[in-house]
């Protein structure tokens, strides 16, 4: 296993070639083979022609690629990347993410990518391990992790999530009803077995909530009144904070691209929130 450090930790007194040759030399690779392997690694990270440069003559992205090239040149079975993009600005980070995905496909080894940025984790991974206080909470594919978190921590950590805590009041063949304080009975579907009286949580993603100015069609099982308290206009989406008469606060996310949307809500507007039973994800406590 090799590590790519957050600061890249390139050796400033060595050229790009020198940096990449370093692990080969440490592994006592015959000197004659080193230039070829270095060249290969340079090609892998698309830095052909940069071999004679020193780290301080490279851009942030190029340094990153040298660090990866240096880590990959000995063909490790695994690569640990320790928050490698943390120092980059948002645009460059996105580019590097795509590059990392492609690179990983090319070399075909496991990249273990440590990050605190959940969107980065979702974007880059095949599988994500969410760790809390040194304990793995869940290991899953990104979409599974997002849609079916197995614990409150995972639900909360990956993206934003409304966590509706309450007591099960009815449970029948795949549908449960939970009495949520400050909100009322909420229905959700689940494969889990549960019984009335158990404490449980429904994890509800903001984008699953519909908001309408009036009581709308009764397609959705869950329907609640509320008042907009705050909103954040983010261009592509708008995030609304809605407070129910019972004092429960929910967050809802509306895509601004939604066809026909002409109306935006303001703080103080009374709205109806609704979502289908299968929108919430039932969590056993």
């Amino acid at each position: 296993m090799r590590t790519v450090f957050q600061s890249y930790a390139l050796f400033p007194h060595m050229t790009v070639e020198g940096n990449i040759a370093f692990p080969l030399q440490m592994a006592k690779t015959p000197a004659a083979e080193i230039p070829g392997k270095v060249e290969e690694a340079l090609a892998d990270v698309r830095l052909l022609g940069f071999g004679k440069r020193y780290p301080h003559e490279l851009s942030g992205g190029q340094k990153q690629r040298v660090a990866i090239g240096r880590a990959l040149v000995t063909h490790p079975t695994m690569l640990l990347l320790d928050e490698p993009l943390a120092a980059l600005d948002a645009k460059l980070r996105e580019e590097m993410q795509i590059e990392l995905i492609n690179l990983q496909k090319e070399v075909g080894i496991t990249f273990v990518y440590v990050t605190h940025d959940h969107t980065e984790a979702l974007a880059l991974s095949h599988r994500i391990a969410v760790m809390n206080k040194g304990r793995v909470e869940q290991v899953d594919q990104p979409s599974k992790l997002y849609n079916f978190p197995s614990t409150r921590f995972v639900a909360d950590f990956i993206g934003t999530c409304n966590l509706l805590d309450g007591v099960v009041i009815a449970a029948e063949s795949g549908t449960v009803t939970i009495e949520v304080e400050g909100l009322g009975p909420v229905r959700a579907t689940t494969m889990l077995r549960t019984a009335a009286g158990a404490r449980a949580t429904i994890a509800l993603r903001p984008e699953k909530i519909r908001i309408e100015p009036t009581a709308a069609d009764a397609v959705c099982e869950n329907r609640f009144q509320g008042t907009i308290t705050d909103f954040l206009y983010l261009g592509d989406v708008t995030v609304y904070r809605v407070s129910t008469p019972g004092g429960k606060k929910l967050e809802a996310l509306l895509a601004n691209s939604e066809a026909g949307r002409t109306e935006f809500f303001e703080s103080g507007n009374t709205v109806t929130m609704s979502w289908p039973a299968d929108a919430g994800h039932f969590l056993d406590s």
Binding site: Q6, S7, A9, P23, R70, T74
Partner: peptide, 14 residues
Amino acid sequence: HDQALLDAAQDLGA
């Protein structure tokens, strides 16, 4: 001196 360089070198087999 930056300790990370030594960590990196160790990781690379030095």
